[in-house]
């Protein structure tokens, strides 16, 4: 059956703001929003959007569908009425059509030192028990799609806020038994744009396509940050 897909088009050379343009697409039970966008591109090759894996693992196809952040390849037209609206991820600068500038997101990820930090020089493998793995495994499932940033009103209001994915990533390494870098990460988390910028809206966890639950990680970060503060009061 045929459905109408309204796409927020933006051409940086001619437009001052995105404008909706309607397209007709053929849809059956297995047509994803990404499939629909590919159909539209057949009609109008100038449509810009990102995608790669088509199987919800590369994290590049994030768009807003009816105002909710979604992965295009994991969202199906069958779940929508005859008409739906697709626009670029919220809270990021739009470069063209559905393509946003992810640089602020990447900068925030890098700011939390997302790698194992320890003094261990040995070439022996680092052993880890299943229980130690379970502590952080859920937070390690992030695919960096950025949907949680588009869901977060605090990031929308303050682009300097570290945001859900970056804080989750910090928590992922802080909880890793092989890591000793917590002291290096805490200043960033304790700062005014760190964990305390979160007011537990919780929508980030709702939209996460990998069930990472960033809201839980951020609030675990608050507990860690408060602990850090109390310990620092007793240090000379």
């Amino acid at each position: 059956m045929s459905k109408t897909i309204n796409i927020a088009r933006y051409n940086p050379q001619t437009d001052s703001r995105p404008q909706l343009q309607a397209f007709q697409v053929e849809s059956d039970n297995s047509t994803s929003v990404l499939d629909a966008l590919l159909q539209v591109q057949q009609q109008d090759p100038s449509l810009g959007f990102r995608w790669s894996c088509r199987m919800a693992i590369c994290g590049s196809c994030g768009v807003m569908v009816n105002g909710i952040p979604k992965l295009g390849c994991k969202t199906f037209l069958r779940d929508y009425p005859d008409e739906l609206t697709v626009s670029a991820l919220a809270h990021f600068n739009v470069e063209k059509d559905l393509i946003v500038d992810m640089q602020p997101f990447l900068t925030h990820l890098a700011a939390v030192k997302p790698y194992l930090i320890n003094d261990d020089q040995s070439s022996q493998p680092h052993r880890q028990t299943p229980a130690q793995l379970a502590k952080y495994q859920q937070f390690a499932n992030c695919i960096n799609c950025g949907l949680c940033y588009s869901a977060c009103p605090q990031f929308g209001l303050n682009p300097e806020f570290l945001g859900p994915a970056a804080i989750t990533l910090a928590q992922r390494y802080n909880l890793d038994s092989r890591d000793a870098g917590k002291t290096a990460r805490m200043p960033e988390l304790n700062s005014k744009n760190g964990v305390w910028g979160c007011t537990f809206v919780g929508f980030c966890s709702e939209v996460c396509p990998k069930k990472v639950d960033p809201a839980a990680a951020v609030n675990q970060g608050k507990v860690a940050s408060a602990g850090d503060f109390i310990i620092s009061m007793f240090k000379p």
Binding site: P12, G67, I68, H91, V94, E95, G156, V201, F203, E206
Partner: peptide
């Protein structure tokens, strides 16, 4: 840089959908 569109958050962002309203 070529121009890019900077979205602004409307004041009534929290009316956008049910999840924000409940929050």
């Amino acid at each position: 840089e070529p121009g890019s569109y900077q979205p602004v958050m409307p004041r009534n962002w929290w009316l956008q959908h049910r999840y924000f309203q409940i929050y």
